[in-house]
Amino acid sequence: MKATRYEGNKTFNVIETEVEAPAKDDVRIKVAYSGVCGTDVHIYHGMMDKRVNFPITIGHEMSGTIDAVGDNVTTYKVGDKVVVRPLDDRGVKPSDKGFNHICEDLKFIGIDSPGSMQQYWNVPAFTLHKLKTTTDLKLAALIEPLSVAVHDVRLSQLKHKETAVVLGGGPIGLLVAMVAKNTGATVIISEINPVRISKAQDLGFDVINPTHTDLIQYVKEKTEGRLADVVFEVAGVQPALDVMTEIAGIRGRIVMVAIHGEKKNIDLFKFFWKELKLIGARVYEKEDYEKSIQLITDNQLPFEQLITDIQPLSKIQEVFENIDKKPDGLKILMDCQL
């Protein structure tokens, strides 16, 4: 079979290796598609060299079909369409308070152990979620990032007819916006990239470029001065942190979706003055995956418009090089059987 190996120093290789039988509690998946996410790009840029052990097969946004099952696996069978929730929580402790998705010893499959950018992938059966036979496996490859968005919106407690502002219109930002809008909320997206602005507009969103339009004033006008009920900070840049407390209304909720690796300046006075809440959100839980699967299965939202390219696994080096050259794309899928 073909498998990709990240060697470090912005270098991928595609190798031929043996297909392995699954261990007794594992299944072997014939991987259909594997999405390229921001974390994969961070690995490519060397930003996670202290964590990742080279060489490694990366990837965790995927869809596929079970090809073989281990001796102890009875819940799944060969031919089942599945996705993997790539969290290995076998190190959970009582001090983790039952929140296995953020337990102290959590391992992320595809980062801390081999991932999905290969033709066949052996994974623990407890990580699987079964799909319907009619599920489009291209769309199913979006279930992992969609689950991030579902988790973010669920933790925000966003309600029907409330106003949400999404700071950042990249892949996760657009998914957050789609899930938020699906709750019946009014959604405004703030984004500076013209290609992503155009895509968000094509998806029917109210989008502004904050370098051209005063975002605070715009939100005031749209809400008759009430400002946003929920703000999703997805951009991960200081200007977004500066404005998030300004556009949140009284008792507004701010959800920190972006990952900030260093300490940043935040206007804490606004939290006192307006009784704001800051909500951390990390990955997802089982119920978020199930909700995402239902959204994909219902196929009532234009998820297919987020897929901007599909490339064969054999071109993985070229794919990552092109992301650096043209970073305004949305979701690129690797066809893991080519």
Rank of each mutant, 00 (worst) to 15 (best):
R196A: 01
T127W: 13
I259M: 14
V148N: 15
N299F: 09
A32N: 08
Q157W: 11
L128E: 11
K161P: 00
F271V: 08
I332F: 03
T74A: 06
V14H: 01
K161I: 00
V84M: 11
I279H: 07
A248V: 10
L215T: 02
I192W: 06
V78P: 12
I307K: 06
D96W: 01
I307L: 03
V14N: 04
K107A: 09
D214N: 15
L333I: 01
D328V: 00
T135S: 12
G170P: 13
D25F: 00
I109R: 14
M62P: 09
T186N: 13
L131C: 10
A141S: 09
V14A: 02
I189P: 10
E221G: 00
D49E: 07
V237S: 00
F272Y: 10
L313C: 07
L278P: 14
L306N: 05
Q118Y: 11
I43Q: 04
V166F: 02
E262N: 15
D152T: 14
H60Q: 06
T127D: 13
G173W: 12
A180H: 06
I279R: 05
D40F: 13
E221F: 00
N53Q: 02
I323Y: 02
K274D: 08
P124N: 06
A21L: 10
K10P: 05
V73S: 01
G252Q: 07
M117L: 05
V83M: 02
V165H: 14
M244K: 12
L167A: 12
L139T: 05
D71E: 14
K331A: 04
G261N: 12
T308F: 03
D242A: 10
M117R: 04
Q311M: 03
S116W: 02
L276N: 05
G91D: 09
N72Y: 06
H45K: 15
P145S: 01
H151E: 14
D206S: 02
K222Y: 03
G204C: 03
V187G: 04
H129C: 08
Q294E: 13
V52T: 05
V123M: 02
P312A: 01
T127Q: 14
V207N: 09
V187H: 03
E18L: 11
A125N: 11
D40C: 12
V41Q: 09
Q217N: 15
H212I: 06
D229I: 07
G70L: 04
E20W: 00
V230Y: 12
E61F: 01
V219D: 12
F320G: 01
R251P: 09
D136L: 13
D288K: 03
T74Y: 06
P194T: 00
I56H: 00
K130P: 15
G79I: 10
P171Y: 07
C103R: 02
E7T: 05
